[in-house]
Design a protein around this nucleic acid. Structure first.
Lengths: 346, 346
DNA sequence: TTGAAAGCGATACCAT
DNA sequence: ATGGTATCGCTTTCAA
């Protein structure tokens, strides 16, 4: 069964079904989209023929002639470490009910790629586009606006919104991270992890934390960051550098939980007591964060909720609902890695 | 900018560009696909018009008239916990070079859903389909075969293959898990975690382990499993049950690392020494597995490689290459949770 | 309840 | 180098 057969092989079309049953294409089409406008007996024969020939409708043709295309473009910045995988997961199952298909693109935090991929996705005439973030290259904004379809920006709500957004206020997350550390008595904060030029969310969190530190009259946050993907190894390496160059630091804000895992490893290797001597807070609530030791204090974004609300927003917008931006809550999960005093929580 | 404008809004077409520049659609089309067959000056004006109007080609139309559709259907069984996210990631970036777009579907281990989703994906006339596993409902196999396009089955190679497969031999993985435990001196094995009726890979691993246990003359493997998604909480719960009902067990094979995280937690709560009294091995090599304590012995599948090879196989098959199944290696990563004697490895 | 015919927006072949 | 025209498979009026 090679590709060479492609020209010879005749994939069944509506017309071939029609011919076989002895009706017009039209009737077959209606048997599919509006079954009750076709005689029961005829409908039965049509269905039988479709089943027998393994007929699969050609939605390229359908989308071209009809009004809607039933594709939803989903643009993420990464799929590593579940960061957005579960958003995509929930989003997708929400769209499934309406037979909307997800077309996926991954920019890997590269703005040129983002322009290219958005263009590419729009070329499939999607019914809507869901995209991570609210900070895009101007061309992306222009293209998305010009497309005239609903655009849902996910994950972040802190900025100019094209149409509708479902996300979190990242500055307040950073502020909460710093405030928690300060409340636990830490005073010399560091920020460790990947901090890509185009990860505006991470930058917003860092700025939120910086503002909180300044407000508390503490020295400014020390940064040990890299442009690469976050990972335990990166966290470990950066933390070693940090400890050597800035021994006065007594608390580390990690840009993601996996980075924090590496930071914990480095600290333990060097015999630093956690949380006594030094505290560590992460971001993202990785599934393992309650299982490392000490267990990791972190921020838990409600990814399921973002995915679900995005699906709902898409459906609403497609059905002429008005744009409506939603700020989604997150939660500070206090665990052992920062808890010095007797606190609340798990 | 509402959807109501949709009828009024005129998305630019080849024809509108052509009219604006004063040439035929044909010329504009060639300016895109074969630029050197169009006068430089004219091409410049055409490009300018496209840029100005934010023209995005309609690939539904292109796919309908042309031979190929540039869509690759990707069907996974889950997106949770990175199990397949990084395969999708690598696969996608491999396809990007050829401007192939990924259309994603997630069956969540539901065979009815699988039939529905495969049908749905085929309706977009993809150039190829990549799908997790080699065990599918008969209807899925029938549809995929009838489509006449390249089908790449991923992750598993242990069974009937439709066209081309890129995956691992899961039975040998299970055998290696058991063999390792036995070599470390464990004798009463248990299998803990999610074991869905439709997760044939997990079943193959379990059977591989059972065969190894039988071959070693040891008592058969005790099972504590559930149908739900694997998670630390599930692992913790099942392990507590296991310890109460089968106290003689001295080694646990977990169906995934996240389940193992929970198992470790349960064991520590009960004061069981790991690996002295009881050993734990996982599957999947989660990014946190080297960071929990004790660090987790596990199997590391080469997900990047599977994604990359799948992309290559798709491109090869599209270009008339022959079907070619590849068995991808995995690695036993020995860490603290099973190492009783002085072993090799990290 | 059913059918005929005109698009949808591109591509591809054949002329010019 | 450029244009005319049929075509892809379906949806959507409009008639019958």
């Amino acid at each position: 069964m090679g590709i060479a057969d492609k020209e010879t092989r005749n994939v069944p079309t509506l017309a071939s079904i029609a011919e076989r049953v002895g009706v017009s294409v039209n009737t077959v089409s209606r048997a599919l989209r509006a079954p009750n406008t076709v005689r029961v007996e005829l409908r039965r024969r049509i269905n039988a023929a479709m089943e027998e020939l393994n007929y699969v409708p050609n939605r390229l043709a359908g989308g071209l002639s009809g009004t809607r295309s039933d594709i939803v473009g989903v643009v993420v910045t990464s799929l590593y470490y579940s960061e957005f995988a579960s958003i995509v997961d929930t989003l997708q199952s929400g769209l499934l009910e309406q037979d909307l298909q997800v077309m996926l693109a991954n920019t890997r935090y590269n703005p040129d790629q983002e322009v290219r991929l958005v263009r590419s996705i729009l070329s499939w005439r999607p019914a809507a586009v869901a995209i991570i973030g609210v900070d895009h290259p101007p061309k992306v904004v222009e293209l998305l606006k010009a497309s005239g379809i609903p655009i849902i920006e996910m994950w972040d709500v802190g900025g100019e919104i094209i149409d509708t957004a479902v996300g979190m206020d990242h500055a307040s997350i950073g502020a909460a991270q710093a405030a928690h550390l300060i409340a636990e008595g830490y005073a010399r904060l560091a920020f460790v992890g990947s901090l890509r030029e185009n990860d505006r969310r991470a930058q917003k969190r860092l700025r939120g934390a910086e503002a909180a530190v300044v407000a508390a009259g503490l020295p400014e946050i020390v940064r040990f960051t890299a442009q690469q993907n976050g990972s335990p190894d990166l966290g470990e390496r950066l933390t070693h550098e940090l400890l050597e160059q800035r021994p006065e630091v007594d608390a580390i804000v990690c840009n993601s939980d996996v980075v924090a895992f590496g930071a914990l490893r480095a600290l333990k290797r060097r015999g630093r007591r956690i949380p006594g001597e030094i505290g560590v807070i992460g971001f993202g609530d990785n599934e393992a964060s309650s299982c490392v030791s000490p267990s990791l204090t972190t921020i838990r974004p409600d990814r399921e909720r973002i995915g679900k609300l995005t699906a709902e927003a898409i459906l609403a917008r497609i059905n002429d609902g008005a744009p409506k931006t939603t700020v989604v809550d997150w939660e500070l999960i206090i665990r052992e890695s920062t808890r010095r005093r007797d606190s609340q929580n798990q």
